[in-house]
Design a protein around this nucleic acid. Structure first.
Lengths: 359, 359
DNA sequence: CGCAGGAATTTTAACGTTAACAAGAGGTGA
DNA sequence: TCACCTCTTGTTAACGTTAAAATTCCTGCG
């Protein structure tokens, strides 16, 4: 064992090839290939002998050769995007880990793709990648209405799945998403159950489908309890915007006593506004966010928020792609997951309040 | 243009091959290959004609074929790790993006590798990946003393570079790192300049080289100004540990008036402790963290912290790998970068305090 | 006994690229 | 004139795999 190669080039490894296994087992290379890929074509005892040889020699099929021959690489491409410093959420970090874990388990590898901002650049990057190396499928995140990227991949006939619904109503693409509507609805019902009657919503600007959906959930929750829905704001997803919107809603003639926000970032802005007014989160004003960012657990008091089941998202996306690649032409894979409400001090008056209230 | 393939399989693309370009330009495939890879071997006018054909036909070399032939894939492997929910930092997210951006620019692609926790699993994952597909190099993050992974890659003769020094004194590996010592030293000097004389340090447990180094920086800063160094704690990197350590240091006979922490997570624990005691960060007690997590900017008041130049780290790592792959056998690439002190409200009494102080 | 039909296995060729070598053109100096 | 370089281009073979076709060997049946 352990070939002591001295060359400096890459892969100085004990490359075990199909031919070597074949020689070892006394069969032809093709039979080894069959034993590995199409077991039923090989006589049971031959197969056993070959698999023993495979085991013994530590053979692993060479993916480059396979990719060249089969035009399929077991590679799934995903484009990274810059971490926005003003965003509290680790969502993409967690997502990538979860996706990669599921991909590995299913025998795929994730290959990262880079493009400067802008969907034209992104599409070009995808096309270049496809030309250069055979990529079996793509995963897209943060898809939106009339997404050029979706249109491009679809027109090329490349298998792909998206984290985010296909908002344009065309349901031929496979997607996995988290139900923001039921999430904010749960948050709204939760603060209502705490006795709040003036529940405001701080959400994203109109162009965001995700934002619109989260707003709907708040509306659902309010309507169900016949609460007024006059307190709402549509702002950019920044802490400062959340802070200002909170001030406005607390300055209203009949001020809000609870604020359901479309993101943790906005909710943190609300917390800052409360801090500035000497109001205690949870005690005087209930606050909820969305995404369960690390910050939500770290601020004082903790921020009530909605946790997205990111690991399930990753798993389902891989499953969707696996189906596509298997040529499974049934209904495209659609999965809508429920977020989980994580209750912390910012929305309750009781024992979850960390530390003594200021007098 | 646009072959209208109807098959559902992967890569239904207009595959332009070397042979097609060759036919188009009226030369042999080898000459096209040379024109692309070894321009000097081809007569200028021929070369021009070929490059025009390449352009015209949109030829991109097939990486699988190249990998098979050359045993080099222009793939760099990196292992993702789970995002720890109690950690405030986006460091890995930003790192991955930066690394990928630099890799793309240098003509590499990042391939992700997955392994359950534990360096044995990780090493196995690396070996499997090497067997299956030719990976040109590896990037390792969070290396530590006597790192098995480093030893394994070294013994295999695979090119790699690490984010983190090779702490075991063997400097034959290429690394890029951020100077934690000068970082905490800067933080210490900063709070001292604010008038603090009882400066404590809350750092990590003894086994961490990074923690030890950050502690040294605090010692440097204190010694320079002849301040006492009796207030120090070595704790796990959690918010709760930071909170408790802060309480201890504030309960001391001569309590701390400033706390320099080894991470934002710990510093956020300190902020929580201050909140519980009704002390104002910055005003009564100066606090600094490390890593410039998003949370640091979002809490009230903002947390003074040290920003790691992550994009430079990514760029230098790729440069290191590029050197290795080019067979550049000079001194291995070592880069030690300075973190940048970001001053926010938690360490100053002045106008950076957000909102009116509580009365 | 001869031959059809099938199962198991081998042979051939190809995926797209490039190193190594071969071959041809043109020039230079003895 | 010819041997001998240099410069440019072409030919061959191989990287490791697998689909398709070809071969061998068996079994059963008329």
């Amino acid at each position: 064992m352990g070939p002591q190669e001295t060359s400096r080039g890459p892969v100085p490894h004990g490359h075990v090839t199909l031919a070597q296994v074949a020689r070892w087992a006394g069969v032809s290379a093709q039979t080894v290939s069959n034993a590995v890929n199409n077991p039923e074509r090989v006589a049971p005892q031959t197969r056993e002998r070959i698999l023993a040889a495979v085991e013994e020699l530590g053979y692993e099929p060479n993916l480059s050769a396979r990719a060249l021959r089969n035009r399929s690489s077991s590679l799934i491409a995903f484009k990274t995007r810059p971490a926005r410093p003003d965003k509290a959420s680790l969502l993409m970090d967690e997502f990538l880990y979860a996706l990669n874990a599921s991909a590995a388990q299913a025998g795929y590898h994730l290959i990262l793709c880079h493009a400067e901002d802008g969907s034209a650049n992104e599409i070009k990057a995808y096309r270049d990648l496809l030309k250069k190396t055979s990529v079996d499928a793509f995963v897209l995140a943060e898809t939106h209405h009339n997404d050029d990227r979706v249109a491009a991949l679809r027109s090329w006939g490349v298998p792909f799945a998206t984290f985010g619904r296909s908002w344009d109503g065309d349901d031929t693409t496979a997607w996995v998403d988290v139900d923001g509507r039921s999430g904010t609805r749960a948050a709204t019902e939760h603060v209502a159950a705490q006795g709040h009657r003036r529940i405001g919503h701080i959400g994203w600007l109109a162009e965001s489908e995700i934002g619109a959906e989260r707003r709907e959930g708040w509306l659902d929750g309010c309507r169900e309890r016949e609460l007024e829905t006059d307190l709402q704001a549509a702002v950019p997803d920044t802490l400062e915007a959340g802070r200002q919107a909170a001030h406005r809603m607390l300055d209203a003639a009949r001020p809000a006593t609870a604020l359901v926000c479309a993101s943790d970032t906005l909710a943190l802005g609300v917390l800052r506004a409360l801090h500035e007014r000497g109001l205690r989160p949870g005690v005087e004003v209930g606050v909820t966010g969305f995404d369960d960012s690390p910050t939500a657990a770290l601020v004082s008091p903790g921020l009530t928020t909605l946790h997205q089941p990111i690991d399930v998202v990753g798993r389902e996306l891989i499953k969707a792609i696996d189906n596509l690649l298997a040529g499974d032409l049934r209904e495209p894979h659609h999965v809508l997951l429920e977020p989980e409400l994580i209750v912390r001090g910012s929305s309750v008056t009781g024992p979850m309040q960390s530390g003594p209230p200021r007098q």
